[in-house]
Amino acid sequence: MSIQHFRVALIPFFAAFCLPVFAHPETLVKVKDAEDQLGARVGYIELDLNSGKILESFRPEERFPMMSTFKVLLCGAVLSRVDAGQEQLGRRIHYSQNDLVEYSPVTEKHLTDGMTVRELCSAAITMSDNTAANLLLTTIGGPKELTAFLHNMGDHVTRLDRWEPELNEAIPNDERDTTMPAAMATTLRKLLTGELLTLASRQQLIDWMEADKVAGPLLRSALPAGWFIADKSGAGERGSRGIIAALGPDGKPSRIVVIYTTGSQATMDERNRQIAEIGASLIKHW
């Protein structure tokens, strides 16, 4: 067993022997301040990774656009098919120029040779490549099948209805392509620590998230040296922004954090800054 596999296998073990965790309302004060600064709703939840206990939450059962955070769930569904012998990570998928959609920095470079399922998941999570996500959605049967996968996990809230990039439209009061912070946090925890996926697939999923290259201005910008984070960000229309993450000190994750916002007129930089400040408060009061 590799060191990384050992780390993920012992996530519940280490967490069980940690000192009790206590909620700190100071972080919620910052979440509410972010709402004021952005002029928009902000949803927040913080779960203990081992027990699933909610440590703090704000608007945990209000719907927010998922945006690209759905790509972690998508690759979880792909990995479940791999575990069941219905898919192979090494299978190569070929596609054409007509398949390319807006923001496809990886797939646009491989029109000639195609990409493997493993490479597509890596591109979808680490670079948020939209064509990679659409190609992977095709392998599982489309958005409705991802929703069905989530329902089978016990998540009857999260739903995907459309493809990239239309799913980022974020129309107010439109339930399409949305989740709730509580539902997303619980589902992410199941994917990373539950028995739904094999140990190898859980490790692969967290490795992809740990290698995320496009979430630097968010929670990662607030992390002290030595902290662990595996995350996936999302951005959408109407001032929408979000991030889902597993993080913790001492090089291992111990909490799940989900943050979503929508309806702001603020710039992307300002949305990023507010999420980073929430992260800084979380870490300060850990």
Rank of each mutant, 00 (worst) to 15 (best):
L79C: 04
L218V: 04
P60E: 15
Y260L: 10
K232C: 01
D113P: 07
L38W: 06
R118V: 10
E62V: 08
L100H: 04
I125D: 00
R41F: 08
P253W: 07
D207R: 10
Y44I: 08
I256T: 03
L19I: 15
F149G: 04
E195T: 12
L197P: 03
Y95M: 07
R220I: 03
A185D: 00
A235Y: 02
G114W: 04
P181G: 04
R271L: 12
A235I: 04
Y44E: 01
A34H: 03
T27C: 08
E145Y: 10
H94N: 13
L282N: 03
D113W: 07
V117S: 03
G90V: 12
A40T: 08
A148R: 14
D212G: 06
Y103T: 05
M209C: 06
S240C: 08
L135M: 10
A124T: 12
H285M: 09
G39Y: 10
R176N: 08
D48K: 04
R255T: 05
N98G: 10
L89D: 05
S240Y: 03
Q204G: 05
R238K: 13
G236A: 10
K284E: 15
T131F: 05
L196E: 13
W286Q: 03
R241D: 02
D99F: 07
S201E: 02
I11D: 02
L89N: 04
A16K: 06
L49T: 08
E35Y: 02
G239R: 02
L150V: 13
F6V: 11
K109S: 14
V8A: 13
A183I: 09
L219Y: 03
A40L: 05
G239L: 01
A123N: 05
N98D: 11
G251N: 15
T261D: 01
S240G: 12
V29W: 15
V257G: 01
T138R: 15
T158V: 04
P172H: 10
A246K: 03
D48Q: 08
L137F: 09
L47E: 06
Q265S: 15
E61M: 14
M209E: 00
A133F: 01
Q88D: 13
L223I: 12
R92S: 10
R255L: 05
G226R: 10
P217A: 14
W163K: 11
T178W: 01
Q203D: 11
E166Y: 15
I243E: 03
A15Q: 08
L10N: 06
E35W: 01
K30C: 15
W208D: 05
R63F: 06
F6N: 09
L282W: 02
M115Q: 07
N173K: 13
H156Q: 14
T262C: 10
E237C: 12
L28P: 05
A200N: 15
A215S: 09
F64D: 00
R7M: 05
R220P: 02
I275T: 03
G234R: 00
P253N: 09
V72G: 03
P12C: 13
Y44N: 00
R81I: 06
F14D: 00
E46S: 13
E277P: 02
S201I: 02
R59S: 05
L47G: 03
W208H: 03
